[in-house]
Nucleic acid binder design. Sequence first.
RNA 1: UCCCUAGUAGCUCAGUCGGUUAGAGCGGCGGACUGUUAAUCCGUAGGUCGUAGGUUCAAGUCCUACCUGGGGAGCCA
Length: 478
Amino acid sequence: MNRKKVREILCSGETGAEVLVKGWVRTKRSSKNVSFIALNDGSVIHNLQVVVDVNDFDESLLRDINTGAALAVRGVLMPSSGSGQKVELVAREIELLGPADPEKFPIQPKKHSLEFLRENAHLRFRTNTFGAIFRIRHAMAFAIHDYFNRHGFYYLHTPIITASDAEGAGQMFRVTTLDALKPPLTPEGNVDFSSDFFGRPTNLTVSGQLEGELGATALGEIYTFGPTFRAENSNTTRHLAEFWMIEPEMAFYDLKDTMDLAEDFLKFLIRYALDHCADDLTFLAGRLREEEKGKPAEQQSMDLIEKLKFVAENDFERLTYSGAVEILKNSNHYKKKKFQFPVEWGVDLQSEHERYLVERHFKKPVILIDYPKEIKAFYMKQNDDGKTVAAMDVLFPQIGEIIGGSQREENFDKLVARMEEMHIPVDELWWYLDTRRFGTVPHSGFGLGFERFILFITGMGNIRDVIAFPRTPKNAEF
RNA sequence: UCCCUAGUAGCUCAGUCGGUUAGAGCGGCGGACUGUUAAUCCGUAGGUCGUAGGUUCAAGUCCUACCUGGGGAGCCA
């Protein structure tokens, strides 16, 4: 018999047919003659109610049907006489595919703390919350490819292992096959990387951007979507050592084109989630409401779905770094000395400043551009004022910087001069500079932190809860 | 890495000023129950109080160090 997914059954709502369903038990409720099993197969957040006449089944079988057990149930779909659901499955045959010892299975039909579930990350998919998160995560990954494909971008697979450590994006993970205890040494006593696998030191990538630019200056528009690694000792709700990043890179785009793309892209993704993940979003919105019940009214955030609609329907605020500094300096917050860190032109904005702009001043996403060149990367286009670069950060409420991007410096001489100023090894990046030597063009790109975006969409507060198996300092379990 | 904070039953937590035998709800188990919705009701088992030292007649409670979790900061996506 054809197996049906719970999603299919609940969507169609048809009754009368005999079907086969397979899934995991969420709860079982029993009385003298009848048992109700809430069965979930991951296809939707909702469970299928299986009705069991206890007189028709072996007592020991029924005893083994506990939370967590896997079942195959054959039965007839009937209109439900209970109020919680329209359709239910009246069981004729039940096969216990895999029991779950109720004394040992950690996931109970009750509210668990996110910390506890994090320690049981291998089983947390079996909860409503994480089922919803990972279905949404999938939908967003799919929508990203969909968006770029529709807009003529090519998906470029940039390398995970890189020999360049010159990107200036922080600490990297070394990739080596050398014996960590007894590495071969040079006559001077240093580690001899010439006998390593690649004949030179190599690391895990911190960004696919530089290679992305090589693709964009031939294919026109490309994007990367892959894992990214930072060996920073960051312990926050917004950082991972291994995360996924989307990096589009576009030939012939200036900064304005890039802002337009970033805004349209984010809004498309949000609308996609609203259109395709309604059940899961509704659940997460309710979860969030529940979580915030205890908080004072002014600390409560907007309803999740309202927030998503608001961002999808309103223009992002665009202003320069200099303009932002002005606003901050003129704010009452500043005058009352409520900022912990100083606000001064030339100094990078702190989290508190970004949050003030986004959450209190504009109350919507903000795109900041034209940052002082001293606080930005070497490859960013130098503006005519000689002081700023054509950089762009998209700031979201709660999350902060969700996108960082820029127009790239396409002028060979200016780029090399800046690299030398910043002590970036020019000869190691000969291949990157070749794009400026041969047929150089204005071009731009940005990076979107996938997990940070999923945080925003799901309303979750900790980045470790939107990736299946988080990698953070001192944590590589599973 | 820095600052703050927490660690007591499978889970979530209470445990007063240091004082006798360590408490609850949920979950588990046993039973009851005419269709339940995280069912309900009755009963029951379950603890090296994070680890190691120290103070004290006496430590879950106070002190020190370490480990682990959480929050914030920095760095950034």
